[in-house]
Simulated scan of single mutants.
Amino acid sequence: MLDFDNDDLVAETSPDLDLDLDLDLDLDLDEILDDVQPDFFRQGLDLYQQNKVEESITAFQKEIEVNPENANAYNNLGFIYYQKSQWSDTIVACQKAIELKPDYAEAYWNLGFAHEMLEDYESAVAAFKKGLDIQPGNSEIYTNLGNMYVRLSQYEEATNAFENAVLFDPENSVSHNNLGVAQYQNGAYRDAVSSFQKAVDIAPQYQEAQNNLAAAKARVDPLEGLEIEI
């Protein structure tokens, strides 16, 4: 999982959105078809886990040469291309995985991450939603979907996505924080206070959520925290 803060997403006076990416490397060898020779596939996994990235790419490419119908190999190749910041190559590999295996939720999600890095947020939304249609209930993907809606300034849709995220993982402080951001941007300041407070309750050292909570409280009661001299 990759976590980063996007400081330039909103104005300095607005809450900070905590972006949460989750990429999927397919490690389930049981999904490989019976006619697939697993040597290159397993070799690719082993090499990647040994941090031998280029050798891992070569192994998965050889697997595809031998077994061109192996969707798992294409997805894993796309995952590694993502790690190398080769976003366009990720898209090509994941699209091929989906062509071979239309119900491949992880490939749709990895496709969404690559579209995000290319700032094609609408395509990222479409990919995340398709993956969730296939495999609903993934809190982290709902959070990523919400993040894309925030980038598109679609705060109502973002709120719905983050609400699903906290529904499926009530203890995810990042999802509560990002829900608060969407609510704040949509003018629902009291709801935002509640969401930021929940994030802080879960993770007391979560500085972004603390800052956001203070900003939202100031919107609800501009005089809160001010000392008046009489």
Results as ranks from 00 to 15, higher is better:
residue 6 N to P: 07
residue 189 Y to I: 01
residue 202 I to D: 02
residue 66 V to Y: 11
residue 9 L to A: 06
residue 161 A to C: 08
residue 70 N to R: 06
residue 138 N to K: 12
residue 208 E to N: 10
residue 146 G to E: 09
residue 1 M to F: 10
residue 66 V to L: 14
residue 33 L to W: 11
residue 84 K to E: 11
residue 18 D to P: 02
residue 115 H to I: 02
residue 20 D to N: 13
residue 26 D to L: 11
residue 157 E to R: 11
residue 145 L to F: 01
residue 193 V to F: 00
residue 109 W to Q: 01
residue 161 A to F: 08
residue 113 F to D: 06
residue 205 Q to S: 04
residue 187 G to Y: 03
residue 148 M to V: 11
residue 94 C to A: 07
residue 173 S to T: 03
residue 135 Q to A: 10
residue 211 N to R: 10
residue 82 Y to M: 08
residue 147 N to Y: 10
residue 51 N to R: 08
residue 15 P to C: 01
residue 223 L to C: 08
residue 205 Q to L: 06
residue 174 V to M: 05
residue 94 C to N: 15
residue 106 E to F: 09
residue 116 E to L: 09
residue 17 L to W: 15
residue 15 P to A: 07
residue 165 A to D: 08
residue 200 V to S: 13
residue 93 A to P: 03
residue 155 Y to M: 13
residue 140 E to I: 12
residue 185 Q to H: 10
residue 180 G to R: 01
residue 187 G to F: 04
residue 167 L to E: 14
residue 153 S to T: 15
residue 119 E to Q: 14
residue 60 F to P: 05
residue 104 Y to Q: 00
residue 18 D to W: 07
residue 202 I to W: 01
residue 200 V to C: 10
residue 129 K to F: 05
residue 68 P to I: 03
residue 204 P to V: 02
residue 119 E to Y: 09
residue 207 Q to R: 07
residue 135 Q to G: 02
residue 122 E to A: 15
residue 57 I to N: 02
residue 169 D to Q: 13
residue 53 V to I: 13
residue 189 Y to S: 03
residue 18 D to Y: 14
residue 180 G to F: 01
residue 125 V to D: 09
residue 38 P to D: 12
residue 18 D to G: 07
residue 114 A to C: 05
residue 185 Q to L: 15
residue 68 P to E: 06
residue 122 E to N: 15
residue 63 E to W: 05
residue 5 D to K: 13
residue 218 A to S: 15
residue 98 I to T: 03
residue 48 Y to W: 11
residue 6 N to H: 13
residue 159 T to E: 14
residue 160 N to S: 12
residue 199 A to V: 01
residue 188 A to D: 11
residue 6 N to L: 12
residue 102 P to R: 00
residue 10 V to R: 07
residue 185 Q to Y: 13
residue 181 V to G: 04
residue 65 E to S: 09
residue 153 S to I: 12
residue 197 Q to R: 14
residue 16 D to L: 15
residue 49 Q to T: 04
residue 59 A to C: 03
residue 228 I to T: 06
residue 97 A to I: 03
residue 177 N to K: 01
residue 157 E to L: 12
residue 107 A to R: 00
residue 121 Y to R: 03
residue 164 N to K: 15
residue 206 Y to W: 03
residue 62 K to F: 04
residue 79 F to V: 07
